[in-house]
Design a protein around this nucleic acid. Sequence first.
DNA 1: TAAATAGTGTCTCTCAGACACTATGCA
DNA 2: TGCATAGTGTCTGAGAGACACTATTTA
Lengths: 251, 251
Amino acid sequence: MNERAFLEAYDPRDYPAVAVSVDVVALTIRDGVLSVLLVERGAAPFRSRLALPGGFVGDETLDDAALRELAEETGLDATNGRLARVHLEQLKSYGDPGRDPRMRVVSVAYLAFAPSLPDPRPGGDAAGAAWVPVATISEARLAFDHSRILADGLERARAKLEYSPLATAFVGPEFTIAELRAVYAAVWGEDLHAGNFHRKVLSVPGFVEGTGTTTARGGDRGGPRAKLYRAGDARVLHPPLLRPTSEEDVR
Amino acid sequence: MNERAFLEAYDPRDYPAVAVSVDVVALTIRDGVLSVLLVERGAAPFRSRLALPGGFVGDETLDDAALRELAEETGLDATNGRLARVHLEQLKSYGDPGRDPRMRVVSVAYLAFAPSLPDPRPGGDAAGAAWVPVATISEARLAFDHSRILADGLERARAKLEYSPLATAFVGPEFTIAELRAVYAAVWGEDLHAGNFHRKVLSVPGFVEGTGTTTARGGDRGGPRAKLYRAGDARVLHPPLLRPTSEEDVR
DNA sequence: TAAATAGTGTCTCTCAGACACTATGCA
DNA sequence: TGCATAGTGTCTGAGAGACACTATTTA
């Protein structure tokens, strides 16, 4: 069977239904901790279990569907179809038969990076929504195959920080190098050498650009005022900021 | 509307049909030229236009659907559900409304790397199938949004050669360093320095392992016999083989 | 005044790339 | 014998990481 023959014989009325949904792995950093947006399911199956926010695709692009779901859960405006300062990219699709006990559902997962956002107001029909530190999420806690999706999203996020400037999507429009370093530390789960990180970031063309201003105060426990930077125009980091060599997770 | 409320109210009989298909960007290197498997469409729309091989998803995983489509077009056995020596990975999903003029189709695209294969025998209902050098494919020649899918697949392939050992999927079970270099040259479209490439490949742990044997003959126009290698057990190249710096495609 | 942090200087080691060179084997 | 190719040696420059140090600000 191929596409051509299939489509001509196709009648949705007599074909097993397939549903297409989007699920969003929305990451942010709250109080220095990498966190993901989860909703509590209000109905069976997996009633009262945590799940990634998501829903079915309407008459819209997949990207728009993901933006819409994210906006619904976070309560943020989707101004002109764009959530301000949120990076969104497609992650992967999941379509194993049986991943949803009710019917065949192919889910297109998205990955979102957001600066620290206020607590979400629960969407109308979800029992609740919250930013949950990823370190506290055990393997079996999420509904459906969402643990797998989350794991894939985290790995993608960690890899992307190396060669893309997306760390800036986790901070405000103006930020210090130390704030940027905290993003890397939270996502990678490793502290980075402050001096070397500083020099490295400034040496990558287009990663950040100075604003000419500094913070109003030094650190809470002392220290000079830090220079403020904006995201630059680079789309790729050249050379990349490589993770501290995890060595033998290579085979 | 969210997933829970939606699913309870859901009846496939009265919901706009969405179809899920897989399309495969199958790449190989024939006579030193990067080529992709294309089929000629036998029916409208896009009748007699070239397209990526693909078809609708049955009661199977997405990966299995892609394997099946690939096996159907190439005529290769899918032994134990695995096409021998073919690497297959999910690429991206495409679901813009209107990308198929007949109905809403969400297509999950796959990327396949294969060693040089014989000419495909046309599948029963496709007008024909062939390996086509990618350099000869003009922007508007492919059906649907398949040009876009192909472009995304090529970019993924080029990037993957840098940090994964997948170049070995393009050659036979035993190969010379020069053959491996030809793969990189074909995919990246740039010649690589033979001496440096040689040393670099051997310096990456687990990329290749020697067989202790050599080719039976030297090159057609002279030269010593080359040592033969097998693919090693590394899943990631550490350090990576970076593309000759394309410099300012960075912004 | 003590402590913490921003930012810089410097050294070492590794690696990429350029170039040169030897060895091998085919026409 | 001439030439193309396999494979190695060596040099240079760039960058990563370790470490040290100065300057600035807060409690």
